[in-house]
Design a protein around this nucleic acid. Sequence first.
DNA 1: ATGATGATTAACT
DNA 2: GTTAATCATCATG
Length: 190
Amino acid sequence: MDFEREFYAKPTVHVAKNLLGQILYHYTPEGMVSGKIIETEAYLQNDPACHASRGMTKRNEAMFGSPGLAYVYLIYGIYACFNIVTFKEGVGEAVLIRALEPLEGVALMQKNRQKEKLKDLCSGPAKLVQALGIGLEHNKQDLIKGFLGIKKREKIKEEDIITTTRIGIKLGADLPLRFYLKNNEFVSKK
DNA sequence: ATGATGATTAACT
DNA sequence: GTTAATCATCATG
């Protein structure tokens, strides 16, 4: 069962925590692929690391759209990262999905990634995008309908959520806006 | 084991 | 021309 738009129309940090333990799925022409979300990061509008912190541009305009849309962007020339737009229209905030635990469609993920080991399939933002067959063409897709979306799965207890600083950024690197599940082997980094 | 580097595109200075 | 919310690969200890 998909979440309603209401689920995403809340403060970004709140949504980031609530996404942990849920299922990200993509119903591709080649079959269903899905995984449990185990790591997220929040990007706030007044956060220097956020693409939207210096206003709307062609690249980041999806972040200012309705909650529940996808924001997919290209990074370092060759990789893509998948975000979920949150809070409300006109405010540029989003949650970056950093890691999944593979569930359905593992064979297809292995094919997409050219890797065998489960831990190499979805243990990083650019990796899970490849594994699920997501691309820039999914930017601004509505996750509430369509073939790409979030399914309800587990309710995570507050004490099973680890909060730390974010990864791979320069500005705002000391803010505690990264969340991941305790005791999970698939987190992207220690 | 850890650390450095190349890949390669869009947006901004 | 520089930089970026990264990853895979190569080099060294």
